[in-house]
Computed example of a mutant assay.
Amino acid sequence: GARSVRRRVHGEDLFSDGAVAESGRVTEAVQLRRTDSADFTLDVSTPHDLARVATSVLAVELEPLGLWLAAIHAAGPTTRWPTADAMIRETAAVIEAGLSEARARCLVVGVPRHCGPDALLRFLEDEVLA
Rank of each mutant, 00 (worst) to 15 (best):
G98Q: 05
A119H: 06
I95F: 04
A29S: 07
A104T: 12
P47K: 05
D13C: 07
H10N: 03
I72P: 01
A97Y: 12
L58K: 02
A2K: 03
D36T: 15
G116R: 08
R52G: 15
R105I: 01
R3G: 01
A104E: 13
F15K: 10
T55C: 13
E127G: 02
E12F: 03
E90A: 07
R105V: 05
T83M: 03
V26R: 14
I95D: 01
L121M: 10
A130G: 07
A74V: 03
A93P: 13
V5T: 11
W81E: 00
R113S: 03
L50T: 14
A75L: 11
G98A: 05
E22K: 11
A102S: 15
R105K: 09
V108D: 12
V9M: 08
L14E: 09
E61Y: 01
L65V: 07
S37E: 15
P117F: 04
G24F: 12
R3Y: 01
F15L: 13
L121T: 15
A71P: 02
G11W: 04
W68Q: 03
L42Q: 10
I95R: 01
V30Q: 06
R105E: 10
R52P: 06
T55A: 05
R8M: 11
F15M: 06
T79L: 15
E61K: 07
V20A: 03
C106G: 08
F123Y: 12
E63M: 01
E12Y: 02
A51C: 13
E63D: 06
E90K: 10
E22C: 06
R105Y: 01
H73M: 14
L58S: 03
S100D: 15
V26K: 13
S37H: 09
D85M: 05
R105H: 06
C115P: 00
A21Q: 14
L129H: 02
R6Q: 08
V128G: 11
T91G: 07
L50I: 15
R105Q: 11
R103D: 14
H10I: 06
S56A: 12
T78H: 09
R7C: 01
A54H: 11
G11E: 02
P64H: 01
G1I: 05
E96P: 05
T27C: 09
P117K: 04
A71F: 07
D36V: 08
V94A: 10
R89H: 09
E63W: 00
F15R: 14
E125A: 11
R113K: 03
E90S: 10
L42G: 07
A74E: 11
W68M: 04
L69E: 01
V109T: 04
A38S: 14
A130P: 11
V20S: 02
L121S: 12
A29I: 01
A102C: 12
F40R: 02
E101V: 15
L67F: 02
D17F: 05
A92R: 09
E90H: 14
S37D: 15
A93T: 15
D118A: 13
S16K: 08
I88R: 06
R3E: 05
A102L: 09
L121H: 10
A38T: 09
G24Q: 06
E12R: 07
R25K: 14
V44I: 14
C106K: 09
A51V: 08
A71K: 12
L58P: 00
L65N: 05
S56W: 13
A71D: 13
A74F: 04
A70L: 04
P77C: 15
V109Q: 07
D43A: 12
T27I: 04
A130T: 05
W68H: 02
